[in-house]
Design a protein around this nucleic acid. Structure first.
Ligand code: SF4
Ligand code: SF4
Lengths: 153, 153
DNA sequence: GGTTATTGAGACTCCTTTGTCTTAAAATAA
DNA sequence: TTATTTTAAGACAAAGGAGTCTCAATAACC
């Protein structure tokens, strides 16, 4: 799999947060319910994003988490790097240790192109971009139903 | 990681086989030594490729494995599918169950492009193509040294 | 036939990822 | 102050991937 499960959950939650008012703290429990992700597991993942400065959290009643920056300034890459690390963009096809341009394997040229395509996609897509698209076309973030079911409070 | 370790080992071994005479059976022990892969582990992986008809094997002295077809007719995709399955090309970014064009997530359009790039690369690159390149430029298939060290018998 | 070289099959261990649970810490509200 | 709501931290369990090992099956050679 390209992205780990933790990373996918982190992305889904980040999209959820980006779809709300920016100043609002959203309880993790709300997100875990709506996105159908285990609460404790999601908590651990979001703690990583908080540690990386992508989210900020607040304890106690009316607490929760929120994005530190507007979603339009957060490319997907930020979340992927925070959770899965740079592995995807540095390791590769034949997975030889110490890989690079200097002493490449035969797949390097072709793989580098593909890898760049992945990088471009993750760097140039922002949370807000996907949220806007999701809202406009009622796309889904969860197993069933469209984007809008996330907002029946 | 894009490809599992088993898959990477399978690819490396397939490249090794494609670089030899086609009719020749190569003992797995020889490959595990040259490619620095655990013998028993590589054996299990190559058994999968044999079961899928990509390799054929022969027991006993002078036995080993060989490609069933010339390397020029074997795209990398065959090996990836045999070992990792179609997961990489069907599952995706947000990993929602039952994904597809019918009920997509907001990432679908962008992801589909990237996924196609990966598919194209795997489908249109053959073993022989990489072997020729590797031999010409003495690229590497193992941690140290170039392509040629595989052939000091 | 007996020994040796090789793949085939499967049990088994080890490690990472995924997921659950419990307890502590912080903030609010009564 | 006490109870409640929330995140923080970390122990623990379950599942899958990665890797090791043993023994059986097959083929060649003596
Ligand atoms: S040489 Fe390039 S393609 Fe090959 S393993 Fe290294 S980074 Fe990957
Ligand atoms: S809709 Fe497309 S991109 Fe989104 S999870 Fe499904 S297949 Fe992947």
């Amino acid at each position: 799999m390209l992205l780990s499960k933790s990373c996918v959950y982190g992305l889904r939650a980040s999209l959820f947060l980006a779809s709300r008012e920016q100043g609002e703290f959203i309880p993790i429990r709300t997100m875990s319910d709506k996105l159908e992700i285990s609460f404790h597991f999601l908590t651990k993942i979001l703690q990583q994003l908080t540690a990386e400065g992508i989210l900020e959290s607040f304890k106690g009643p009316n607490g929760g988490v929120r994005l530190t920056k507007p979603g339009s300034e957060v490319p997907l890459m930020d979340i992927v790097l925070a959770i899965d690390g740079s592995q995807l963009l540095t390791e590769c096809a034949l997975g030889l240790p110490g890989c690079g341009i200097k002493n490449p394997c035969p797949l390097h040229d072709k793989w580098a192109e593909t890898r760049d395509a992945i990088r471009e996609m993750l760097e140039h897509t922002t949370l807000t971009e996907l949220v806007d698209k999701g809202k406009a076309e009622n796309l889904r973030l969860t197993t069933e139903g469209g984007f809008d079911i996330l907002f029946d409070d």
